[in-house]
């Protein structure tokens, strides 16, 4: 049982770390600020969520797991708010999103 849990934990950690890395790569690779917000969102949601889930398995049930839950809940509530505020501020700051109207 312990072995299975630690394997699950390792898999979650790998997935989370990959999500964080890919998100950061996307922030570098994507062409303009609005696309980059999408990439940054990967770190905030999938990356943070998976890594903290892995840490929850590691910590067992204690005050520490409660704190981890607080962190992940807080990130899930604030991350979309700041993404939205950033996009809105960028629009108002006359940074126009690059759009492709052609389908496909």
């Amino acid at each position: 049982m312990d072995g299975i849990l630690s394997i699950i934990r390792d898999l979650l950690l790998i997935a989370g770390a990959l999500a964080v890395l890919i998100g950061a790569l996307g922030v570098i690779r994507f062409p303009e600020v609005f696309s980059r917000i999408h990439a940054a969102g990967i770190t905030d949601t999938a990356g943070a969520g998976l890594i903290i889930l892995a840490l929850l398995i590691e910590s067992g049930f204690s005050l520490i797991s409660l704190k981890l839950l607080v962190i992940v809940l807080f990130l899930f509530f604030t991350s979309p708010t700041s993404s939205h505020a950033l996009a809105k501020a960028a629009i108002h700051g006359r940074v126009l999103p690059l759009t492709h109207q052609d389908k496909g």
Binding site: V33, A48, L68, I71
Partner: peptide
Amino acid sequence: TIYDRILAVNNFGTKTVLVLALYGFVTERP
């Protein structure tokens, strides 16, 4: 643009949170 920088700072903060959480577990003092 300035918004790219804000995005980077915000995301850097999230990563710092993760680093601190992970570091606590690596050094076994969560």
